[in-house]
Design a protein around this nucleic acid. Structure first.
Lengths: 328, 328
DNA sequence: ATGAAAGCGCTAACAA
DNA sequence: TTGTTAGCGCTTTCAT
């Protein structure tokens, strides 16, 4: 069943049918109706391969993800999906596990553009996509690349605000547990932390870097307890770490926020349901997704080359895991 | 740049090039090399739209997901992705948010087949896909449908084993907090729970149904504490609920598993990092994904109609949140 | 406003 | 073993 069947059924030519399909204005209303009726009756849908072939466009935007178990990704994906749908594009997600060259999406004629979300082998991907001349943007990435628009959150500011908040609560002994230090975001958060302390005439009480997991946070906190070098406040590199910290402290009878204040990062959904609900830094996922889509579509439409890096302000959320320092 | 360029460059016809591309044996080795060389030099990749058009196949399998913040989904997705890649197929994920008809994937010529993972509006989807005559399978679904292969975990068995384990530990006062009771899986888990109790000559100590969230579990447990009707063991409908329960108990100074044993369901990744590590029921994600792919490919290749429902045994994981009942 | 003809890049059928 | 020809289903000139 194809466009010819519709033409036959409606008594018009395939060209007219095609025009109706593409909302061309130069079709008499009577004929348009005839065609629409035939389409309806035949339950016809144009063949997408044929369309792609002749148009040189697919209407598909690919997005490469590394992880499907994270609120941050979930939120970004939803926004991107919705926004692309509004623009008539379809989002095809792909999990980045294989070699870069193996990625099916990375072919000029399969997608009109690509979004890389928190890419792991960022440089490889960028080289490959540039070589293949596929329009793409980076979201939450690590490095800066010439001619590649990217949208990142201001991790420095996040770290700064988190620490500033603790300082404002009167804390002077503030430690930091960051994620894997290979990440630029980790480095930036730390930088914000240090800067805020410096401005207040303070120095880091302690710094440690571990995995973005509950257990790593737990272990670091347990060690600090064992070594009897506990601060009065801890800025954690993400919510998982923070949760591990809270748990370790609680096991030793140290209460959050009564005895020690803890700040997280990312506002992981399930973490928000724990008590004490974590004071944390939320990344502006909606903005990030939205701007990312805008940039990509500009690129695809060959409009002016968008700015290289868009840095978004994070949102600091004060909840229940932080409190004024206890007077001793 | 297309197949003609390669033909020209290699001094052979487009047909020969096509044959090389498709590993046809009837090409002399010398010529094959010539073609390969030309492809290499031109960095040529066949146009996929043209291929799809003429072959009537896309090489793409679509998978519709509702949530990207869950270990269970993450695990299934990874297995499916890997397995499809092995078979030369590409997995395109799509988030199910819009109307069924809006789903871009649901078009015969866009994908060769579809996998529905834990679909929400299951019946609508099934009707639509049947109407469009697209091969598809269901994973972790709710209902049974004629002529649609599906793979589910034996939730009844999961509930049974979890409860049996508690009974074996000497517990007689065993309560259950299930998820939203609209789900068949929730009903099945409950049924297993009740059955295990019955066989042991016991009756449910209490039953409650709430959302699959930490906070719901927390609230139910808090209420039970307030009303002073605590069991010695609780079988929770999933890990989130279980976590909420543990937290609520701990806040009241009731220790898990010392005072009360708690069992979860799903083996959510981050939950495994909490202490006490949760005794839980793991769904066989790898099997589910693998069998799902096999069934779908059978369907696509028009082989014998696969069995309607494949029910997989869950795996019971004894960890640290359960212990023998305390002698009073 | 409508249609005939050409062509997008590829593969399959048939011939040589 | 290789190549010629036709055609997948659609859109886009270019006439009319």
């Amino acid at each position: 069943m194809n466009i010819h069947d519709v033409a036959k059924k409606s008594g018009l030519s395939v060209v007219t049918v095609s025009r109706v399909l593409n909302n061309s204005p130069s079709v008499r209303e009577v004929n348009r109706q005839k065609v629409l009726k035939a389409i309806e009756e035949l339950n016809y849908q144009p063949n997408s391969a044929a369309r792609s072939l002749v148009r040189g466009k697919t209407g598909v935007i690919g997005m490469s993800i590394t992880n499907f178990n994270d609120s941050f990704y979930d939120r970004v994906i939803r926004v991107v999906n919705r926004k692309l749908a509004e623009q008539g594009y379809f989002l095809a997600l792909s999990i980045a596990e294989n070699e870069v060259e193996d990625n099916f999406l990375f072919q000029r004629d399969r997608v009109d553009g690509i979004i890389l979300l928190s890419p792991l082998r960022e440089n490889e991907y960028v080289v490959e996509l540039k070589r293949k001349n596929i329009p793409f943007v980076l979201l939450d990435n690590q490095f800066q690349h010439e001619d590649v628009p990217s949208v990142v959150v201001d991790n420095y500011q996040g770290g700064y605000e988190a620490t500033r908040h603790l300082i404002d609560l009167g804390h002077t002994q503030i430690a930091h547990i960051g994620g894997p230090s290979v990440f630029l975001s980790v480095e930036e958060r730390k930088r914000g932390y240090v800067q805020a302390l410096n401005e207040a005439g303070l120095t880091p009480f302690g710094m440690e870097f571990c995995g973005f997991t509950v257990s790593s946070g737990y272990e670091v906190a347990k060690r600090w307890i064992r070594e009897d070098k506990l601060p009065t406040a801890i800025f954690s590199g993400d919510d998982f770490i923070a949760l591990g910290v809270v748990q370790a402290l609680r096991e030793e009878g140290i209460l959050v926020p009564h005895d020690i204040s803890v700040v997280g990062f990312d506002d992981q959904q399930f973490v928000g349901e724990f008590f004490p609900r974590l004071t944390t830094v939320r990344q502006p996922e909606a903005q990030m997704g939205s701007i990312g889509v805008d940039l990509l579509l500009q690129l695809i439409n060959g409009e002016v080359m968008p700015a290289a890096v868009t840095k978004l302000a994070p949102q600091f959320l004060v909840r229940e895991s932080t409190a004024p320092v206890r007077q001793t």
